[in-house]
Design a protein around this nucleic acid. Structure first.
Lengths: 113, 113
DNA sequence: GTGATATTCAACCATCCGGTTGACGATCTC
DNA sequence: GAGATCGTCAACCGGATGGTTGAATATCAC
């Protein structure tokens, strides 16, 4: 598992991690706040964040005792390009994307559903 | 692992499977022919094809004793839309994509490199 | 310095994943 | 029907993955 596409796609394959990315789309967050909506332990979320960081999908920056996580959407570009090579997909419908995100969040964060 | 994005992204996370998809981009192929360029056993390739089929990324059709595999690029659309929601990526550069594919194939199919 | 907060580390566990091999079922050829 | 070919199935193996808990580290507040 060395090639960049491997790590990016495999990071995206987990619904918890996709939910985290969706949360970070709205704003940078501290690790504790990222973990709050999920049922699993903080340590588990910390591991997920490590996976996302190693894929380049997020950056973590320590400020005081808080570690801030922010999205690095550029890491998705190569993967996106790869996929688009397989079909000329229509331009993105952002409304559909938002509905989609809500669905993902609802499935993955029981408090919201 | 039930949500469609899970299966699609995790199918795409393996370089062998991405190489297979790239091969199928050129033409439909029999399982044996798909397996030919790889170093691993036919059974392993058969498993990879099952993963791709369960993700909806390919379809398999038996004709005589040969099973033909063909790309189903529509299965990538939801994943592509999801990713594009994270950044307004530039329109796809197909030349770059082809170079990319060649790189992937070279890395994954030693005979070609 | 003490104590609370934020995050990771380490060890552990169950399950999944990607590969192997050998046997099997199906189909074609003769 | 006999034998070869196509592909999958089943059992197995080692290593990765996703979760847990408890201890450790680092920082803040007092």
């Amino acid at each position: 598992m060395a090639q960049p596409l491997d790590t990016v796609f495999s990071a995206l394959a987990d619904p918890t991690r996709r939910a985290i990315l969706a949360m970070l789309l709205e704003d940078d967050m501290a690790v504790t706040d990222v973990a709050e909506p999920f049922k699993m332990s903080l340590a588990a979320i910390s591991k997920h964040l490590t996976v996302l960081a190693e894929a380049g999908l997020i950056a973590r920056e320590r400020r005081g005792r808080v570690i801030w996580c922010k999205l690095e959407p550029d890491a998705m570009r190569a993967a996106s390009v790869w996929m688009q090579g397989f079909g000329q997909f229509e331009p993105v419908d952002l409304d559909a994307f938002e509905r989609f995100l809500e669905g993902e969040l609802a499935e993955d964060r029981p408090e919201a559903g």
